Simulated assay, not measured.
Amino acid sequence: MAERNHSVVTQFILAGLTDKPALQLPLFLLFLGIYVLTVVGNLGMIALIGLSSHLHTPMYYLLSSLSFIDLCHSTVITPKMLVNFVNEKNIISYSACMTQLYFFIVFAISECHMLAAMAYDRYVAICKPLLYHAIISYRVCSWMVVVVYSLGLIGATAHTVCMLRVLFCDANVINQYFCDLFPLLELSCSSTFINELIVLCLSAFNILFPTFSILASYVLILASILRIRSTEGRSKAFSTCSSHMSAVAIFFGSLAFMYLQPSSVSPKDKGKVSSVFYTIIVPMMNPLIYSLRNKDVKVALHKLLEKRCFL
């Protein structure tokens, strides 16, 4: 009980990306532009899929769910980050910090498993095309999305409950631009062994399990593509996977660099750069990747614009 009385921190100070005043305005404008593109791109993708009847398939249902996750993921982090660029002191209350941490983890975990679900969808489409509608029905697709969000909520609840048990005494400067797990644990004046164990175990599950699922799917996809005799058939099969592979490589690469190592090993500045990729850059790039490298999306957008012009 006496130890609990030492937990006096009621607010934290976010160190942000840089402490150089000359860079604050340029970074504010840069990340404001990125956030606007993220909101427009992901909302546009959701609206396009909803309005285009020929995109009402399981693949695009999963893609619209990914766009929703990206939109929420970015919104949890970026607005507060933008405010911090123009404020003299980047203060966040204890309750707001824990709330941001919770929702950040929900959408980060959900994105990992959503990318795995999309890889499985591509595997069935290419390797078992005749059984696609039987295996990936709308009911199965809906259950996949429910499981994805459930894993996100369970993981976030576990991490946040453990974080609420941690005591914070005098140190309250978080060396990050948002409330992240390892930077918060570094401020603790109590034991964080259980927290770090849970972080490593859950991070390994939520990164490695989807990664291995995606790799297994693409090994089978590649084997199936190599059996296709026509060059056109191979090219079409590769094109359906290339955008997803690009999104996977960027997201999991930056996430694994950040979380699949002990906090003492992770270089702080490199950790910030890695965080920028998976919290801000990836949510902006996903709709661009899927729209620029997907023929169906281009056709749907073209038809929608033509219809609007004739109205």
Results as ranks from 00 to 15, higher is better:
V273A: 12
V273F: 11
V273T: 11
S274I: 14
S274D: 13
S274M: 09
S274H: 14
S275G: 09
S275Q: 03
S275V: 01
S275E: 03
S275H: 09
V276K: 01
V276G: 01
V276E: 03
V276T: 07
F277T: 10
F277Y: 14
F277N: 08
F277P: 08
F277H: 10
F277M: 14
F277W: 14
Y278T: 08
Y278R: 04
Y278C: 09
T279H: 02
T279P: 07
T279Q: 07
T279S: 06
I280E: 12
I280K: 03
I280D: 03
I280G: 00
I281A: 02
I281W: 12
I281V: 14
I281P: 00
I281T: 13
I281R: 01
V282S: 11
V282A: 13
V282G: 09
P283E: 13
P283R: 13
P283V: 08
P283F: 10
P283A: 15
P283K: 06
P283S: 08
M284N: 00
M284A: 02
M284L: 11
M284V: 15
M285H: 10
M285P: 00
M285Q: 00
M285L: 12
M285A: 01
N286S: 05
N286Q: 00
N286V: 14
N286Y: 08
N286W: 10
P287A: 00
P287T: 14
P287F: 01
P287V: 12
P287H: 04
P287D: 04
L288F: 14
L288T: 10
L288D: 06
L288P: 05
L288E: 02
I289Q: 00
I289F: 11
I289H: 02
Y290V: 09
Y290R: 07
Y290S: 09
Y290Q: 06
S291I: 09
S291G: 14
S291Y: 11
L292T: 10
L292C: 10
L292F: 13
L292A: 08
R293Q: 14
R293H: 06
R293K: 14
N294V: 15
N294A: 12
N294R: 12
K295Y: 03
K295D: 10
K295S: 07
K295R: 06
K295L: 12
K295A: 07
K295W: 05
K295M: 02
K295E: 04
D296N: 14
D296P: 12
V297H: 07
V297C: 04
V297S: 06
K298E: 09
K298A: 04
K298R: 10
K298I: 12
K298V: 08
K298M: 06
V299I: 12
V299K: 09
A300W: 04
A300K: 02
A300E: 05
A300H: 01
A300T: 05
A300D: 00
A300R: 01
L301V: 11
L301T: 11
L301N: 02
L301H: 03
L301W: 04
L301I: 07
L301P: 11
L301M: 06
H302Q: 01
H302A: 08
K303F: 11
K303V: 02
K303I: 15
L304S: 07
L304F: 09
L304K: 04
L305Y: 15
L305R: 15
L305I: 15
L305N: 12
L305H: 15
L305Q: 11
L305M: 07
